[in-house]
Design a protein around this nucleic acid. Sequence first.
RNA 1: CGGGGAGUGGCGCAGUCUGGUAGCGCAUCUGCUUUGGGAGCAGAGGGCCGCAGGUUCGAAUCCUGUCUCCCCGACCA
Length: 440
Amino acid sequence: MRLSRYFMPVLKETPGEAQVISHQLMLRAAMIRQTAAGIYAWLPMGKRVLANIERIVREEQDRAGAIEVLMPTIQSSDLWKQSGRYDAYGPEMLRITDRHDREMLFSPTAEELFTAIFQNGARSYRDLPRNLYQIQWKFRDEVRPRFGVLRGREFLMKDAYSFDVDYDSAVHSYNRMFIAYMRTFARMGLNAIPMQADTGPIGGDLSHEFIVLAPTGESDVFYHENWLKTRDTSAIDADDRGALASFIDGLNADYAATDEKRDLAAESACGAALKQSKGIEVGQVFYFGDKYTKAMDVTVQGPDGQPLTPQMGSYGIGVSRLVGAIIEACHDEAGIVWPDAVAPFQVALINLRADDAACSQACDKLYADFAAAGIDVLYDDRDERGGAKFATADLIGLPWQVIVGPKGLSAGVVELKRRATGERIEVPIDAVVAKIAGKI
RNA sequence: CGGGGAGUGGCGCAGUCUGGUAGCGCAUCUGCUUUGGGAGCAGAGGGCCGCAGGUUCGAAUCCUGUCUCCCCGACCA
């Protein structure tokens, strides 16, 4: 993409409305604009990051055997009355009436709808287990939205719902999502720690929140320092029930809990290894058994011919929140430092002299070469001075900067800068595309 | 929902106390110069001062009401 033809209105100064760093940088880097309290428009840079996060989430859900669907954002109140949550959810649920005065709502979560859709398509225990998921916008009318996309009212969420024949099978479904979450967050460059958590209004008795440590986080969390090291989950066979269960038991042997689920005995056992911090919740997994299937009278026929009530779990990832969480974890004084996997573009191609024919020609050729190599490039071909282009490139945080100027060009080299480390090397102009391609 | 703060060109702010032609920096547009870390000079465009009433010869400024946004707390993917 040529910056001269793009839509990327970066801000030199920080808007007063933004207090936390990720919110400030998202506004300055032209990722979002606020349209109302807790509601945001996503500009091209933000949209690209959101799409990358979505892609990773989708790939890991698919790999874990979950099946993607798409439910409506606007739902009828009927199902919610059946489950009893129409009253229980309270003012956080946005209620709407249509022209016929029917009671509608903007979905804050979707246990009811998934349960109903599942019942509609499943008749036999042979139709279990199944795990259905969607990536869809949700709306929760928070009392106090804040911190940009970290606590918006409208947010993009991946929500999955598993249906199993019995407890053991349901726990395996839970464990599969657990490990899928570990992999998902690791791919985004995050160390998200699974912590014992409250189930809240969803109900149930088994739940973990995945927490990214950050000073701006809203949760108080307590954990063994072993969690500061990232865990390798690549070798685990998620289809092997026993192996998966013992691996997760091994993980959970290291204490980690949110403040609602603190275990003082376990904490004193950690001794000096106990750490306390603030954290951002980026995902949560629940097992809640037959809470919804029972309330909504959902059954399938069991092997003995008798009705069987499926055991459920639900699994959420805050996709739009992750954008903010990643920035909280990955930034410096100059701006965002995107992990490669979620960066809106891989490379910032910086033409230091857009008025110089040789520079522009060399950049145009590199731009074409990157495109041919399938590498996403944002080509700064604007008629600006070098300093302004460097500042912009650092602010938007693309992993690589390829700097093309008359000095280097006369020697046949360009400069390659790694945003994360600031390290710069000179590379022959013909070798730079291959060099970056080899590192992505 | 309790407590605090703020609404003035696109962004950041001053002006309000003490009413009298709406200002500054950045950004934008034009021209010239400049060009490896947010350039310089000259010129230009853009705001019924959140909204509605009221007081006054005259309101960004005083009074009343109202809307919106931000922060702290309680609540929450």
